[in-house]
Design a protein around this nucleic acid. Structure first.
Lengths: 156, 156
DNA sequence: TTAATTTGGTTTTAAGATGCAACCTTATTA
DNA sequence: TAATAAGGTTGCATCTTAAAACCAAATTAA
């Protein structure tokens, strides 16, 4: 059977995953944030098959995450650049990267050292903040109107 | 050919995606954050096939994102609960959800209204902050030692 | 106490997705 | 003019996936 699609799910995480939730798409976005723009560069840096790269780039363009720009200097060459929608994935990618660095430290690579251009200092760990700006965990929050966790059925 | 695995990639995002980067895993984590713990509840709420759910739960347990707890009250029944590693995905999931709400607003569902238990107020949008606590975008940051974006090769 | 149901799985089977290699077309370079 | 690079497309073998059928143990209902 076909892989399930979530285009019309009423969960926005599911719909988001429909756009960037496969193996390669988010890595392509990550590479784009690192400055990669050209087909061959994506291919080499990610080690991705060309047909898959074609498909994913096209899909990301369709979804408005990337835009395909014909660069005139060399004739029919293209660049894939992040749109605002794509750049807006920055917190997602960074949060994921920090999670990976924390819980699956690289055997040989240093954790992400991302610095603010203005100050030269490292950025903070991405967290969820309440209205006062204090970090909160999943245990500190609730969804209005939803049953409290663990009380839905079969309350153990 | 088999799907490429990234267990030993030196990119922590790739390794993170190896653990929670497929379609279902992150949705399972999301459901777990909403309080779901039982096999059947995951199945019903996600509409996922049982064999896939089995596989993903086992994989998440293997990766230390969930733990499988035998609940004694009814004999051989189990609960799947988030570990600290799993709860630590909170900023990732929330950032993704907010991105989805912003760029692919639900046709019929309201955007996430997540509130701080202590204050009752809505949480903030997840952002990347510099050392001073000011939000930064992908354009405001750099990786020490890396070439500036767009200057690597074939500088257009 | 027997039958039906729930829970948590495994198996089977098809339709898709993936990776690799080969090929193709249009530019550019030698 | 030949060779190479960029950006794809096509075919094929192999995996993965989804759905439904099936299963066994533990409850619950009658």
């Amino acid at each position: 059977m076909a892989r399930k699609r979530f285009d019309d799910s009423n969960c926005s995480v599911a719909r988001a995953l429909n756009q960037v939730g496969d193996w390669w798409s988010l890595l392509i976005v990550l590479q784009a944030m690192y400055g990669t723009r050209r087909f061959v560069d994506f291919q080499q840096e990610l080690g991705i098959a060309k047909n898959i790269l074609c498909d994913r780039l096209a899909r990301l363009v369709d979804n408005g995450v990337l835009k395909k720009v014909e660069v005139g200097e060399h004739g029919s060459r293209f660049e894939y650049r992040l749109t605002e929608k794509g750049r807006d994935l920055f917190p997602v990618v960074i949060a994921l990267r920090q999670w990976g660095d924390k819980w699956n430290p690289a055997p040989d690579a240093a954790p992400l050292d991302l610095r603010d251009r203005a100050t030269g200092q490292a950025i903070q760990t991405v967290q969820v903040h309440n209205a006062e700006g204090e970090p909160v965990t999943v245990r500190d929050v609730f969804v209005p109107g939803a049953p409290a966790p663990g009380t839905k059925k079969d309350p153990a």
